[in-house]
C-alpha cells in the first residue's frame, strides 16, 4: 500500500502549478525514500526533476516501489478542488490502476475524495551527471520572475552573464534592448532578499525566455531561487520546497553552430 499525507495541501497545489506549464503527463516514482518525478517537456528542451522526501510528509507509507503515470492537467484539476487549509492524503494499492486524493478540512467536517485513473507511460529516464558549476547564484525568486517577465517582452531569448560583480540579464529584439544588472548584496540580515554569487569562472549563456517563464511558476514555493551555470551546459534553476524537497528545472542553452 502507498499512503502519503501532507497537512499542508497548499505545498502540493503549488508543486502542480510549478509543473503544469511544462508537462502534460509524468511518472511519479514512489519508494521508501519519497516521491520522485523526472520528465522532459514535449519539445525535449527542458527537464523537470522533483523530489519530495518521505520524512517531509506528515505520514508516509510505501510497501513496494510504485511507478504511477499521471495526467498533469487532471491532477492539477483535482488539486484545485482542495482548499489551501486542507490536509491531503494520496493513496494507492499495490499494482494500482488509480490513485485517490483525499482532502480533509481542518476540523474534519468535510472530506472529499477524488479518484484518478493512472496511465501507462513509457518515459525516457536521463542520468544527470554530477557537475561542478562555474557560477552559482542565489537570488530572490520574485526578482528572478520579474526579470524573466520583463525581458521576455524584448526578445525570445535571454542572455545571463555572471561575473564576480554580479549577474546581468539581457534581451534584444525588434523594439530594442533590455539589460538588468544585479549586484551581490552585502552581508544582509534578510537572507530572503540576498543576491549571492559564487563564481569560479565568469559565464555567459543564452536561454529561451518561454521556458524560464514556465520555471518561475515555482516562485510561490520558495523566497529564493538558485541558478547554476557552466559554459555550454544546461542551466539548473532550483527551488527548495520547504523542509520536504526541491524542484529543479534543467534548460538546454542556445549555442552557436
Amino acid at each position: 500500500m502507498f499512503e502519503a499525507r501532507l497537512v499542508q495541501s497548499v505545498i502540493l497545489k503549488k508543486v502542480l502549478e510549478a509543473i503544469k506549464d511544462l508537462l502534460t503527463e509524468a511518472t511519479f516514482e514512489c519508494s521508501d525514500c519519497g516521491i520522485q518525478l523526472q520528465a522532459m517537456d514535449n519539445a525535449h528542451v527542458s527537464l523537470v526533476s522533483l523530489n519530495l522526501r518521505s520524512d517531509g510528509f506528515d505520514k508516509y507509507r510505501c510497501d513496494r516501489n510504485l511507478s504511477m503515470g499521471m495526467s498533469v492537467p487532471c491532477m492539477s484539476k483535482i488539486l484545485r478542488c482542495a482548499s489551501s487549509e486542507d490536509t491531503v492524503t494520496l493513496r494507492a494499492w499495490d499494482n494500482p490502476d488509480t490513485i485517490v486524493f483525499v482532502f480533509e478540512s481542518p476540523n474534519r467536517d468535510k472530506i472529499s475524495e477524488y479518484e484518478m485513473k493512472l496511465i501507462n507511460l513509457d518515459q525516457e529516464h536521463l542520468g544527470i551527471p554530477e557537475t561542478l558549476y562555474s557560477c552559482v547564484v542565489k537570488m530572490p525568486s520574485q526578482e528572478f520572475a520579474r526579470i524573466c517577465r520583463d525581458l521576455s517582452q524584448f526578445g525570445d531569448a535571454m542572455t545571463i552573464a555572471c561575473s564576480k560583480e554580479g549577474i546581468k540579464f539581457s534581451a534584444a529584439g525588434d523594439y530594442g534592448t533590455a539589460n538588468v544588472k544585479l549586484a551581490q548584496t552585502a552581508e544582509t540580515e534578510n537572507q530572503e532578499e540576498a543576491v549571492v554569487v559564487e563564481m569560479k569562472e565568469p559565464v555567459k549563456l543564452t536561454f529561451s525566455c518561454r521556458y524560464l517563464n514556465s520555471f518561475v511558476k515555482a516562485t510561490p514555493l520558495c523566497a529564493q531561487v538558485q541558478l547554476s551555470m557552466s559554459a555550454e551546459v544546461p542551466l539548473v534553476c532550483e527551488y527548495q520546497i520547504g523542509e520536504i524537497g526541491h524542484i529543479r528545472y534543467y534548460l538546454a542553452p542556445k549555442i552557436d553552430d
Binding site: 536521463l126 543564452t206 544546461p234
Partner: peptide, 14 residues
Amino acid sequence: APKQRKIRQFFVKW
C-alpha cells in the same frame, strides 16, 4: 542566431 539545443544532448540515457 544561436540554435536551441535539446536537453538529452547533455544527459546520459538510463
